[in-house]
């Protein structure tokens, strides 16, 4: 217990003394995960939309596929991409292994099914009349899509937040694809893994705190937007 208190105190002083290395790691984490999310959102939204509103062969299969992909361990996704991106792999020519781009690819792969899956549920729950009303009032397909997106924005925002939470705290794929290189591909989760293995609990806890505070802030923000947050609103 004493050790934990001590480590937490050290963690706080590390955070507030503006430890450069620590904040650099935080910066890399956010940069990679935010970009991964931004890249993943538009295609995921379109696909979720197609799944919710389109009628095509394989639609049900795709829905099942993306739900399944949610439970694939991140290490497996990391390993698959590692094999693809390794020099010996089919995409080895790109020389992407152990770069931030590789980490981003991993996180996009992780975020995508979640965005599609939760996004699809949100859009499915949307009133079909929203789409039809938009269309009958002369909206283009894109505009109607954006309108419906806006109508179910809270559900979609939840999808985005859940996905962000998944990728920013994910260690397996980032470790394999980024290689945990200092100043380059060391992000919060891989740094926590490393510091913990070295017995440097203060660093680990400090980084954990950053994640925790961020998760809290995001959720408070979401609830703020959602307003009342109880049934009957």
């Amino acid at each position: 217990m004493e050790a934990l208190v001590q480590a937490s105190q050290d963690a706080l002083s590390l955070l507030f003394s503006g430890d450069k290395e620590l904040w650099e790691i935080v910066g890399i984490s956010f940069q990679v995960s935010l970009l991964a999310l931004i890249i993943a959102i538009p295609p995921a939204l379109l696909l979720a939309f197609a799944l919710a509103y389109g009628q095509f062969v394989g639609r049900r299969f795709l829905i099942a596929l993306f739900s399944t992909m949610l439970s694939v361990p991140t290490v497996v996704i990391g390993l698959t991409l590692y094999v693809l991106l390794s020099r010996q792999g089919p995409l080895g020519e790109w020389r992407l292994l152990f770069t931030q781009t590789a980490m981003m690819l991993g996180q996009i792969t992780l975020a995508f099914p979640m965005l599609v899956s939760i996004g699809h549920s949100a859009l499915q729950a949307a009133d079909r009349r929203a789409w039809e009303t938009a269309r009958t009032l002369g909206a283009s397909r894109l505009r109607a899509l954006l309108t419906v997106t806006y109508e179910v924005r809270f559900g979609l925002l939840a999808a985005v937040l859940a996905s962000f939470g998944r990728i920013i705290s994910e260690v397996g794929a980032s470790m394999m694809l980024g290689g945990n290189i200092l100043h380059h591909t060391r992000n919060i989760p891989t740094a926590i893994a490393l510091e913990t293995s070295k017995g440097e609990f203060a660093q680990g806890i400090a980084l954990g705190l950053v994640l925790l505070v961020m998760a809290l802030a995001l959720n408070v923000l979401l609830h703020h937007f959602q307003g009342k947050g109880y049934v009957g609103s």
Binding site: D127, R129, A130, E132, T133, A134, T136, L137, G138, A139, T147, Y150, E151
Partner: peptide, 26 residues
């Protein structure tokens, strides 16, 4: 595009009446 369909229960978009009317304009 020259046909307009009104649902039994018309659908109102998020926002004011004004914004809903604005939606119908070119």
């Amino acid at each position: 595009s020259r046909v307009l369909y009104l649902h039994q229960q018309p659908y109102m978009f998020e926002g004011s009446v004004w914004a809903n009317l604005d939606y119908a304009l070119p």
